[in-house]
Design a protein around this nucleic acid. Structure first.
Length: 91
DNA sequence: TGGTTGACCAACT
DNA sequence: AAGTTGGCCAACC
């Protein structure tokens, strides 16, 4: 891809893009997101980034932990996150 | 420029 | 089974 016409995107923007790509009823682990974002070992950064992200256009609630746990959520905690996933049919 | 932080993970106790 | 420690990576001050 030519970045000549595009601005330089940061890891954060790539993470946002990946999370946006998650379909309804689907869940992705932080590891997967990090891997698709270009750094399979940056799951730690992914969490930090999503924690700072308050954009409702990004279904950050579809991102869960690698062992199947819900993980955290900036929009009401794990409880709300689990509720949303259940509502979407992911659980 | 360097050190701290964090929605994680794996291993150890 | 549950709590602690170390490790990894990008963003923020």
């Amino acid at each position: 891809m030519d970045q000549k016409t595009s601005n330089k995107i940061s890891f954060t923007d790539r993470v946002y893009a990946v999370v946006k790509h998650i379909q309804k009823g689907q869940t992705r682990t932080y590891k997967e997101v990090a891997e698709q974002a270009g750094s399979p070992r940056a799951y730690r950064a992914v969490g930090s980034i999503l924690s700072k992200n308050f954009d409702p256009h990004i279904p950050c609630h579809r991102v869960i932990k690698g062992n199947g746990a819900i993980g955290n959520y900036n929009r009401g905690g794990k409880k709300a996150k689990e509720r949303i996933l259940k509502q979407e049919g992911a659980l």
